[in-house]
Protein backbone atom coordinates (compact mmCIF):
# COMPACT_ATOMS: atom_id res chain seq x y z
CA UNK A 1 0.00 0.00 0.00
CA UNK A 2 1.19 3.47 -0.84
CA UNK A 3 2.30 5.42 2.21
CA UNK A 4 1.20 9.04 2.44
CA UNK A 5 3.45 11.88 3.37
CA UNK A 6 7.09 12.72 3.11
CA UNK A 7 8.27 9.26 2.10
CA UNK A 8 6.36 9.72 -1.12
CA UNK A 9 8.03 11.36 -4.11
CA UNK A 10 6.44 14.74 -4.70
CA UNK A 11 4.03 14.72 -7.59
CA UNK A 12 5.18 16.48 -10.71
CA UNK A 13 4.31 20.12 -11.04
CA UNK A 14 1.00 20.61 -12.75
CA UNK A 15 -0.09 17.05 -12.24
CA UNK A 16 -3.38 16.41 -10.58
CA UNK A 17 -2.83 16.12 -6.85
CA UNK A 18 -4.94 15.53 -3.81
CA UNK A 19 -7.37 18.10 -2.64
CA UNK A 20 -5.93 20.26 0.13
CA UNK A 21 -8.20 18.56 2.66
CA UNK A 22 -6.94 15.10 1.72
CA UNK A 23 -3.38 16.37 1.91
CA UNK A 24 -4.12 17.71 5.39
CA UNK A 25 -5.59 14.41 6.63
CA UNK A 26 -2.59 12.49 5.32
CA UNK A 27 -0.18 15.02 6.81
CA UNK A 28 -1.66 14.42 10.25
CA UNK A 29 -0.88 10.72 9.88
CA UNK A 30 2.66 11.49 8.78
CA UNK A 31 3.24 13.82 11.72
CA UNK A 32 1.57 11.71 14.40
CA UNK A 33 4.58 9.69 15.45
CA UNK A 34 6.91 12.64 15.67
CA UNK A 35 4.40 14.78 17.55
CA UNK A 36 2.67 12.62 20.10
CA UNK A 37 0.94 15.51 21.88
CA UNK A 38 -1.65 16.43 19.25
CA UNK A 39 -5.19 15.13 19.01
CA UNK A 40 -7.83 15.62 16.33
CA UNK A 41 -11.38 16.79 16.97
CA UNK A 42 -14.18 16.30 14.46
CA UNK A 43 -17.86 17.24 14.22
CA UNK A 44 -19.14 14.41 12.03
CA UNK A 45 -17.37 15.51 8.85
CA UNK A 46 -14.16 13.45 8.99
CA UNK A 47 -14.84 12.16 5.49
CA UNK A 48 -15.03 15.75 4.29
CA UNK A 49 -12.09 17.30 6.10
CA UNK A 50 -9.60 14.52 5.36
CA UNK A 51 -9.24 13.55 9.02
CA UNK A 52 -10.68 10.10 8.26
CA UNK A 53 -7.09 9.11 7.44
CA UNK A 54 -6.04 10.03 10.96
CA UNK A 55 -9.10 8.39 12.55
CA UNK A 56 -8.18 5.10 10.88
CA UNK A 57 -4.50 5.28 11.83
CA UNK A 58 -4.80 6.77 15.34
CA UNK A 59 -8.31 6.10 16.66
CA UNK A 60 -7.37 6.89 20.28
CA UNK A 61 -6.17 10.34 19.34
CA UNK A 62 -9.32 11.12 17.40
CA UNK A 63 -12.34 12.59 19.24
CA UNK A 64 -15.83 12.80 17.84
CA UNK A 65 -18.16 15.62 18.92
CA UNK A 66 -21.17 15.10 16.74
CA UNK A 67 -22.80 18.04 15.01
CA UNK A 68 -22.03 20.49 17.79
CA UNK A 69 -19.23 22.83 16.76
CA UNK A 70 -19.53 25.39 19.55
CA UNK A 71 -18.92 22.76 22.18
CA UNK A 72 -16.10 21.22 20.13
CA UNK A 73 -14.26 24.54 19.84
CA UNK A 74 -14.42 25.28 23.57
CA UNK A 75 -13.60 21.67 24.45
CA UNK A 76 -10.46 22.08 22.35
CA UNK A 77 -9.52 25.06 24.52
CA UNK A 78 -10.02 22.90 27.62
CA UNK A 79 -7.90 20.11 26.18
CA UNK A 80 -5.19 22.61 25.27
CA UNK A 81 -5.22 23.81 28.89
CA UNK A 82 -4.17 20.29 29.91
CA UNK A 83 -1.18 20.34 27.56
CA UNK A 84 -2.56 18.65 24.46
CA UNK A 85 -2.48 20.34 21.06
CA UNK A 86 -5.94 19.93 19.55
CA UNK A 87 -6.70 20.24 15.84
CA UNK A 88 -10.31 21.40 15.58
CA UNK A 89 -11.51 20.32 12.17
CA UNK A 90 -14.75 21.07 10.37
CA UNK A 91 -16.00 23.03 7.38
CA UNK A 92 -15.11 26.71 7.21
CA UNK A 93 -18.73 27.86 7.60
CA UNK A 94 -19.07 25.82 10.78
CA UNK A 95 -15.90 27.34 12.17
CA UNK A 96 -17.80 30.61 11.86
CA UNK A 97 -20.55 29.05 13.94
CA UNK A 98 -18.01 28.48 16.71
CA UNK A 99 -16.43 31.88 16.15
CA UNK A 100 -17.11 33.27 19.58
CA UNK A 101 -15.71 30.14 21.21
CA UNK A 102 -12.58 30.62 19.08
CA UNK A 103 -12.46 34.22 20.24
CA UNK A 104 -12.95 33.79 23.99
CA UNK A 105 -12.02 30.25 25.00
CA UNK A 106 -9.22 29.81 22.46
CA UNK A 107 -7.63 33.15 21.56
CA UNK A 108 -8.44 35.36 24.55
CA UNK A 109 -7.36 32.55 26.87
CA UNK A 110 -4.19 32.14 24.75
CA UNK A 111 -4.70 28.45 23.99
CA UNK A 112 -2.56 26.49 21.60
CA UNK A 113 -5.41 25.28 19.38
CA UNK A 114 -5.22 24.69 15.62
CA UNK A 115 -8.45 25.33 13.78
CA UNK A 116 -8.31 23.71 10.36
CA UNK A 117 -11.20 24.40 8.02
CA UNK A 118 -12.01 22.60 4.83
CA UNK A 119 -14.59 23.70 2.27
CA UNK A 120 -13.77 27.40 2.03
CA UNK A 121 -14.77 29.71 -0.80
CA UNK A 122 -16.45 29.05 -4.12
CA UNK A 123 -14.15 26.03 -4.36
CA UNK A 124 -16.87 24.19 -2.40
CA UNK A 125 -18.95 24.13 -5.60
CA UNK A 126 -22.29 22.30 -5.83
CA UNK A 127 -23.26 22.54 -2.14
CA UNK A 128 -24.02 26.16 -2.89
CA UNK A 129 -23.96 29.50 -1.16
CA UNK A 130 -24.84 28.21 2.30
CA UNK A 131 -21.66 26.14 2.40
CA UNK A 132 -19.24 28.52 0.66
CA UNK A 133 -17.45 30.46 3.38
CA UNK A 134 -16.39 33.77 1.85
CA UNK A 135 -15.90 35.49 5.19
CA UNK A 136 -13.67 33.17 7.22
CA UNK A 137 -10.31 34.82 6.54
CA UNK A 138 -11.77 38.20 7.46
CA UNK A 139 -13.45 36.90 10.59
CA UNK A 140 -10.50 34.98 11.99
CA UNK A 141 -8.03 37.67 10.98
CA UNK A 142 -9.91 40.06 13.26
CA UNK A 143 -9.29 37.99 16.39
CA UNK A 144 -6.26 39.37 18.26
CA UNK A 145 -3.32 36.98 18.18
CA UNK A 146 -4.91 34.56 15.71
CA UNK A 147 -2.54 33.44 12.95
CA UNK A 148 -4.30 32.86 9.61
CA UNK A 149 -2.90 30.53 6.98
CA UNK A 150 -4.14 29.44 3.55
CA UNK A 151 -1.76 27.04 1.76
CA UNK A 152 -1.87 26.64 -2.00
CA UNK A 153 -1.10 23.02 -2.83
CA UNK A 154 -0.73 19.60 -1.19
CA UNK A 155 3.01 20.01 -0.63
CA UNK A 156 2.47 23.29 1.16
CA UNK A 157 -0.39 21.87 3.24
CA UNK A 158 1.96 19.23 4.59
CA UNK A 159 4.66 21.77 5.43
CA UNK A 160 2.18 24.25 6.88
CA UNK A 161 0.56 21.61 9.08
CA UNK A 162 3.92 20.86 10.66
CA UNK A 163 4.78 24.54 10.93
CA UNK A 164 1.59 25.42 12.78
CA UNK A 165 2.17 22.47 15.11
CA UNK A 166 5.57 23.94 15.95
CA UNK A 167 4.05 27.36 16.54
CA UNK A 168 2.73 27.89 20.07
CA UNK A 169 -0.56 29.78 19.73
CA UNK A 170 -3.94 29.78 18.06
CA UNK A 171 -4.02 29.30 14.30
CA UNK A 172 -6.77 29.24 11.68
CA UNK A 173 -5.83 27.31 8.55
CA UNK A 174 -7.90 26.91 5.38
CA UNK A 175 -7.64 23.77 3.28
CA UNK A 176 -9.92 23.16 0.28
CA UNK A 177 -12.47 20.79 -1.15
CA UNK A 178 -11.63 20.33 -4.82
CA UNK A 179 -8.70 18.40 -6.33
CA UNK A 180 -5.85 20.80 -7.00
CA UNK A 181 -2.75 20.90 -9.15
CA UNK A 182 0.75 20.78 -7.74
CA UNK A 183 1.98 24.31 -8.29
CA UNK A 184 4.91 24.66 -5.93
CA UNK A 185 8.36 23.26 -6.74
CA UNK A 186 9.70 20.28 -4.80
CA UNK A 187 12.28 22.48 -3.07
CA UNK A 188 9.58 24.87 -1.82
CA UNK A 189 9.79 25.64 1.83
CA UNK A 190 6.84 27.07 3.79
CA UNK A 191 7.67 29.58 6.48
CA UNK A 192 5.00 30.88 8.83
CA UNK A 193 4.62 34.63 8.35
CA UNK A 194 6.51 34.72 5.05
CA UNK A 195 5.31 35.15 1.50
CA UNK A 196 7.32 33.54 -1.29
CA UNK A 197 8.07 34.72 -4.79
CA UNK A 198 7.09 31.76 -6.94
CA UNK A 199 7.72 33.42 -10.29
CA UNK A 200 9.60 36.65 -10.79
CA UNK A 201 8.48 39.63 -12.86
CA UNK A 202 8.95 43.37 -13.11
CA UNK A 203 5.71 45.01 -14.29
CA UNK A 204 3.33 43.98 -11.51
CA UNK A 205 3.03 41.63 -8.56
CA UNK A 206 0.15 39.20 -8.16
CA UNK A 207 -0.26 38.25 -4.51
CA UNK A 208 -2.42 35.15 -4.10
CA UNK A 209 -3.29 32.50 -1.55
CA UNK A 210 -4.96 29.09 -1.52
CA UNK A 211 -6.47 27.79 -4.73
CA UNK A 212 -6.09 31.23 -6.29
CA UNK A 213 -2.31 30.78 -6.55
CA UNK A 214 -2.73 28.32 -9.44
CA UNK A 215 -4.92 30.88 -11.24
CA UNK A 216 -2.35 33.59 -10.54
CA UNK A 217 0.39 31.48 -12.15
CA UNK A 218 -1.82 30.85 -15.18
CA UNK A 219 -2.50 34.58 -15.36
CA UNK A 220 1.23 35.31 -15.30
CA UNK A 221 1.72 32.94 -18.24
CA UNK A 222 -1.11 34.59 -20.18
CA UNK A 223 0.33 38.03 -19.47
CA UNK A 224 3.79 36.93 -20.61
CA UNK A 225 2.32 36.28 -24.08
CA UNK A 226 1.43 39.97 -24.13
CA UNK A 227 4.92 40.88 -22.95
CA UNK A 228 3.76 41.78 -19.48
CA UNK A 229 6.08 40.45 -16.84
CA UNK A 230 4.13 39.61 -13.67
CA UNK A 231 5.69 38.52 -10.41
CA UNK A 232 3.67 35.95 -8.47
CA UNK A 233 3.80 35.80 -4.69
CA UNK A 234 2.30 32.99 -2.67
CA UNK A 235 1.07 34.77 0.46
CA UNK A 236 0.06 31.68 2.38
CA UNK A 237 0.25 33.42 5.75
CA UNK A 238 -2.41 36.11 5.69
CA UNK A 239 -1.77 37.09 9.28
CA UNK A 240 0.79 38.17 10.24
CA UNK A 241 1.25 39.46 6.69
CA UNK A 242 4.75 39.70 5.24
CA UNK A 243 5.08 43.52 5.21
CA UNK A 244 8.69 43.41 4.12
CA UNK A 245 8.06 41.36 1.00
CA UNK A 246 5.02 43.47 0.07
CA UNK A 247 7.01 46.70 0.38
CA UNK A 248 9.76 45.19 -1.74
CA UNK A 249 7.25 44.10 -4.43
CA UNK A 250 5.56 47.50 -4.37
CA UNK A 251 8.92 49.19 -4.83
CA UNK A 252 10.25 46.85 -7.51
CA UNK A 253 7.12 46.24 -9.62
CA UNK A 254 5.15 49.42 -8.87
CA UNK A 255 1.71 47.84 -8.50
CA UNK A 256 0.03 44.91 -6.82
CA UNK A 257 -2.98 42.71 -7.58
CA UNK A 258 -4.40 40.44 -4.92
CA UNK A 259 -6.28 37.23 -5.75
CA UNK A 260 -8.34 35.17 -3.32
CA UNK A 261 -11.34 32.85 -3.19
CA UNK A 262 -12.94 35.06 -0.53
CA UNK A 263 -14.90 38.27 -0.20
CA UNK A 264 -12.78 41.24 -1.22
CA UNK A 265 -13.66 42.74 2.17
CA UNK A 266 -11.45 41.65 5.03
CA UNK A 267 -9.38 38.88 3.48
CA UNK A 268 -6.03 38.78 1.68
CA UNK A 269 -6.79 41.90 -0.38
CA UNK A 270 -7.57 43.93 2.71
CA UNK A 271 -4.54 42.60 4.55
CA UNK A 272 -2.27 43.55 1.65
CA UNK A 273 -3.90 46.98 1.32
CA UNK A 274 -3.42 47.63 5.04
CA UNK A 275 0.22 46.71 4.71
CA UNK A 276 0.79 48.90 1.64
CA UNK A 277 -0.86 51.90 3.28
CA UNK A 278 1.43 51.53 6.25
CA UNK A 279 4.64 50.78 4.41
CA UNK A 280 4.89 51.53 0.71
CA UNK A 281 1.93 52.90 -1.19
CA UNK A 282 1.32 51.72 -4.76
CA UNK A 283 -1.72 51.10 -6.96
CA UNK A 284 -3.47 47.89 -6.00
CA UNK A 285 -6.39 45.93 -7.43
CA UNK A 286 -8.33 43.20 -5.69
CA UNK A 287 -9.58 40.04 -7.35
CA UNK A 288 -12.07 38.23 -5.17
CA UNK A 289 -15.79 37.85 -4.62
CA UNK A 290 -17.40 41.28 -4.70
CA UNK A 291 -19.44 41.19 -1.51
CA UNK A 292 -21.92 38.56 -2.66
CA UNK A 293 -22.90 35.07 -1.55
CA UNK A 294 -22.13 32.14 -3.83
CA UNK A 295 -24.44 29.53 -5.39
CA UNK A 296 -24.39 25.95 -6.67
CA UNK A 297 -22.17 25.13 -9.62
CA UNK A 298 -18.78 23.60 -10.39
CA UNK A 299 -15.83 25.57 -8.94
CA UNK A 300 -14.56 26.65 -12.36
CA UNK A 301 -18.03 27.79 -13.46
CA UNK A 302 -18.38 29.76 -10.25
CA UNK A 303 -14.89 31.24 -10.59
CA UNK A 304 -15.90 32.52 -14.02
CA UNK A 305 -19.28 33.85 -12.89
CA UNK A 306 -17.91 35.55 -9.78
CA UNK A 307 -14.81 36.93 -11.45
CA UNK A 308 -11.84 35.12 -9.91
CA UNK A 309 -10.38 33.25 -12.92
CA UNK A 310 -6.95 33.85 -14.46
CA UNK A 311 -8.57 36.14 -17.06
CA UNK A 312 -9.93 38.40 -14.35
CA UNK A 313 -6.53 38.49 -12.70
CA UNK A 314 -4.99 39.51 -16.08
CA UNK A 315 -7.50 42.34 -16.44
CA UNK A 316 -6.75 43.53 -12.93
CA UNK A 317 -3.01 43.47 -13.60
CA UNK A 318 -3.42 45.59 -16.73
CA UNK A 319 -5.59 48.04 -14.85
CA UNK A 320 -3.09 48.29 -12.02
CA UNK A 321 -0.25 48.91 -14.49
CA UNK A 322 -2.19 51.77 -16.14
CA UNK A 323 -2.60 53.33 -12.70
CA UNK A 324 1.13 53.44 -12.09
CA UNK A 325 2.59 56.96 -12.10
CA UNK A 326 5.71 57.39 -14.14
Amino acid sequence: MEQPGTSQEPLLLGSSGDSLREAFGKSLVTLADRYDNFVVLDADVAGGTGTHHFRRAYPKRFFQFGIAEQNMMAVAAGMAATGLVPFVTTFAVFCLRAYEQARLSVAYAGRNVKIVASHPGLDVGPDGGSAQALEDLAAFRAIPGMVVVSPADPLEVEQATEAILNYNGPVYMRTGRSPVLRVLPADYSFELGKGKIIQDGIDATIVACGVELARALTAADLLARESISARVVNMSTIKPIDDELLAKCALETGCIVTAEDHNIYGGLGSAVAESLVGNHLCPAEMVGIKDRFGESGEPEELAEKYGITADYICKAVKKAITRKQY
Binding site: A76, G78, G83
Partner: peptide
Protein backbone atom coordinates in the same frame (compact mmCIF):
# COMPACT_ATOMS: atom_id res chain seq x y z
CA UNK B 1 -9.90 29.66 31.72
CA UNK B 2 -11.38 32.96 30.62
CA UNK B 3 -15.13 33.18 30.98
CA UNK B 4 -17.75 35.84 30.48
CA UNK B 5 -19.66 34.40 27.54
CA UNK B 6 -22.14 31.99 29.07
CA UNK B 7 -21.92 28.31 28.16
CA UNK B 8 -18.28 28.36 27.12
CA UNK B 9 -16.73 27.67 30.52
CA UNK B 10 -18.83 24.53 30.75
CA UNK B 11 -17.50 23.21 27.42
CA UNK B 12 -13.96 24.13 28.42
CA UNK B 13 -14.48 22.09 31.61
CA UNK B 14 -15.65 19.15 29.49
CA UNK B 15 -12.47 19.54 27.43
CA UNK B 16 -10.30 19.57 30.55
CA UNK B 17 -12.05 16.45 31.81
CA UNK B 18 -11.36 14.74 28.48
CA UNK B 19 -7.78 15.99 28.29
CA UNK B 20 -6.88 14.95 31.84
CA UNK B 21 -8.44 11.53 31.44
CA UNK B 22 -6.58 11.04 28.15
CA UNK B 23 -3.36 11.75 30.04
Amino acid sequence: TSTGSLGQGFSVAVGMAMGLRYQ
